[in-house]
Design a protein around this nucleic acid. Sequence first.
DNA 1: GACTGACATCACCATAGGCTGATACGTTAC
DNA 2: GTAACGTATCAGCCTATGGTGATGTCAGTC
Lengths: 118, 118
Amino acid sequence: MVMSVDSDASGAPATGTAPDQARVLRALADPLRMRIVSLLSREALCTTHLVEETGAKQTNLSNHLKILREAGLVDTEPCGRFTYYALRPEALTGLAADFAALASAARLTAEAGFKRSC
Amino acid sequence: MVMSVDSDASGAPATGTAPDQARVLRALADPLRMRIVSLLSREALCTTHLVEETGAKQTNLSNHLKILREAGLVDTEPCGRFTYYALRPEALTGLAADFAALASAARLTAEAGFKRSC
DNA sequence: GACTGACATCACCATAGGCTGATACGTTAC
DNA sequence: GTAACGTATCAGCCTATGGTGATGTCAGTC
């Protein structure tokens, strides 16, 4: 079984729905957002903490957090006037599984020397 | 052990070197490039094949292939006047491992309810 | 009820990045 | 050698996206 990216391939839809994956990857492809994700993997934080940790401006962080939220990578939990952000493990496990499947397919292809002739 | 993304964290450098990862993720964050990667996971192809499969223009594909190459995701093997592109499994296994580590860290954080107080 | 703090949204600018046509380069075929 | 083909590179356009300051909104605090 392969990535959920393309329409062909062998059967069962992988972990995430197809259109999601591009969005998730684009969300993770930014260094600051990746930093945020890494920080959130250890503890839930609110924007104030992230401002301290990253040195980025509040507005900027708010934008990035919105992107992470819309990609389904983080959950928000309002707590008084604070908003806690927590990483959603499912989003990452799906990606990890997809990449692992791709990697094993690629290894098989490389070892068997599958090559379309011109 | 956590992502190779940030400088802190617990010890061993993960699979890929840090600056690489952003580039790899950016390379994968494009739908067409992801499609290419998916196609290459099953068999090595040259640009002509990819033009047929994706319907994209040759120039466009050449650009995307360059990005994938510079990200270390694909290898090129000249074959006469053709150039075969093959997916490099290592790049994917590294990513898969990193995401799996992140996911398990996130799951632990979620279950234990780690949360920095404001 | 007025104020402060946490956070989101908006409008704007600057840059990056994707797509394209034109073109250059190397290889095979004649 | 010349022509045809596969591929890479270049310059230009256009859209997407990240960063910023100003502003709005809501929840506590006095």
